[in-house]
């Protein structure tokens, strides 16, 4: 079956489509998740150098220090914060089935589960933002 006959959206379907917040949240949850996974593997290797003694540790720390890495570290915290706070929303909705509203008789304009969980979404994003402000202050205090 040819590509044009099959007509599958492919990776383009992961984002865009003129759709709402939740689809972007889904997309960024994936991207941030992948980044954190790659960082985790790197982090295990880097911090594992402590087992080889002080010289090895200092050498490794030397390699990953400086303003560039400090900035990347802040970006990492941004990424983790989004993933964590959005993850809380997903645990609440997907796992516990809370904040979704109950099934009801649909009357136009429809009020769906997406609308029901949006206050939670906004609250968590505000909390994440506040946390990031505090973090930025901490980073600037000790660059």
């Amino acid at each position: 079956m040819g590509r044009f006959r099959e007509n599958r959206a492919g990776f383009g379907g992961w984002f865009g489509g003129r759709l709402g917040l939740e689809k972007w949240a889904y997309f960024f949850q994936r991207i941030t998740g992948l980044l954190i996974y790659l960082y985790l593997l790197l982090h295990i290797v880097v911090t594992g150098s402590r087992a080889f003694g002080p010289d090895a540790w200092e050498r490794t720390m030397q390699a990953v220090s400086g303003p560039v890495f400090r900035f990347l570290e802040y970006l990492l915290i941004v990424v983790i914060t989004f993933h964590a706070f959005n993850g809380i929303r997903l645990i609440v909705t997907e796992f516990f089935g809370w904040a979704l509203g109950r099934p009801h008789r649909p009357v136009y304009p429809y009020r769906t589960s997406l609308h029901h969980q949006r206050p939670l979404f906004y609250t968590l994003m505000v909390l994440a933002f506040v946390f990031l402000i505090i973090t930025a202050w901490g980073f600037l205090a000790n660059p």
Binding site: G17, L19, G20, E22, K23, A25, Y26, F27, Q29, R30, L90, T93, E94, G97, L100, G101, P103, P106, V107, Y108, Y110, T112, S113, L114
Partner: peptide, 21 residues
């Protein structure tokens, strides 16, 4: 993964995302 795209486009207010959760 609760991207909610299905519910967003549903013309009848069926809310398939709610069903899946």
């Amino acid at each position: 993964h609760f991207a909610g795209a299905c519910t967003e486009v549903c013309p009848k207010g069926v809310d398939p995302a709610l069903g899946a959760q």
